[in-house]
Amino acid sequence: MSKRLVALGDSFTEGVGDDDPGRPNGVRGWADRVAEVLATREPDFRYANLAIRGRLLGQVLSEQLEPALAMDPDLVTLYAGGNDLMRPKVDIDALADKYDKAVARLTETGATVVLFTGVDGVEDPLFRRMRGRTAIYNEHVRVIAARHGTRIVDLWAMRQLRDRRLWSADRLHLNALGHAEVAIAVLDVLQVPHELTPAALGPRPVLPVRQQRAENLRWTREHALPWIGRRLRGESSGDTVSPKRPALAPVES
């Protein structure tokens, strides 16, 4: 059983969208949920989360890889590249080469490493445009996982993540229900028994076209335009954010 978990990445791993004012950075997320389960099974368990929202793949690796290795983890989760895929131009092959080298360093330590594919955004107008990029990125991740013997959580295959009820209002980040789904998938890949259960949401409601348009306009005004503005100004949502768990520490129940 793992004793030292270090989670690396961007907003997905930090837990953005799963708001919890009582936690560091005001978010919980799937990684916290996984750590909570692992802590119940190992008295000496310790957990660090170095992920910061808005980080590009290169930033994740340059800022987080060395500190993670210094902690001598026996379990590492790594997801990066989603923010790169949203840029106007991206060299996915170059990203994959950096990713491959980082994963090699992690697996050489003997740690169990968990990687993730990107979500299939086929049912969302914004992410549908990125579907080809994401599919190429995912194939690279699968090859890297096979080459280095890592575990892989296939978010692309999780069709339940197409349901907008699992996403926060910004449509970019999972909400508490979505993060719980990912936590279940991670624990299942690790073959760790748990009592987490998927949300029983029932059939998705069919919204009138007028309501869909109104919601899309509100989303554009409240979330899309501010995001575009930050990009034009060269700003990131993570510019003033620090890792919420920068060092290995016990998990409070």
Rank of each mutant, 00 (worst) to 15 (best):
P73M: 06
P73N: 01
P73G: 02
D74M: 03
D74Y: 01
D74H: 00
L75A: 06
L75N: 03
L75F: 04
V76A: 03
T77P: 11
T77N: 10
T77K: 06
T77G: 11
T77V: 09
Y79K: 05
Y79H: 10
Y79P: 03
Y79I: 15
Y79Q: 09
Y79A: 07
A80P: 01
A80Q: 04
G81S: 14
G81Y: 01
G81M: 06
G81H: 10
G81K: 10
N83H: 01
N83W: 00
N83S: 02
N83P: 00
D84C: 08
D84A: 10
D84K: 04
D84Y: 05
D84I: 05
D84H: 02
L85G: 12
L85P: 15
L85M: 15
M86G: 15
M86C: 13
M86E: 15
M86S: 15
R87V: 03
P88M: 09
P88C: 09
P88K: 08
P88I: 07
P88R: 10
K89G: 04
K89H: 14
V90L: 14
V90C: 14
V90F: 11
D91T: 07
D91S: 07
I92F: 12
I92N: 11
I92G: 12
I92Q: 11
D93Y: 05
D93C: 04
D93I: 04
A94D: 12
L95C: 09
L95I: 10
L95G: 15
L95R: 11
A96I: 07
A96G: 13
A96L: 14
A96D: 07
A96V: 11
D97K: 11
D97C: 01
K98I: 09
Y99H: 06
Y99E: 05
Y99S: 05
Y99F: 15
D100F: 06
D100A: 11
D100I: 02
D100V: 03
D100E: 12
K101W: 03
K101Y: 07
A102Q: 08
A102N: 10
A102M: 11
A102E: 05
V103Q: 00
V103E: 00
V103S: 00
V103A: 01
V103W: 01
V103F: 02
A104I: 09
A104P: 02
A104K: 12
A104V: 07
A104S: 10
R105Y: 00
R105G: 06
R105I: 05
R105V: 02
R105N: 02
L106C: 09
L106G: 02
L106V: 09
T107A: 11
T107G: 06
T107N: 05
T107S: 11
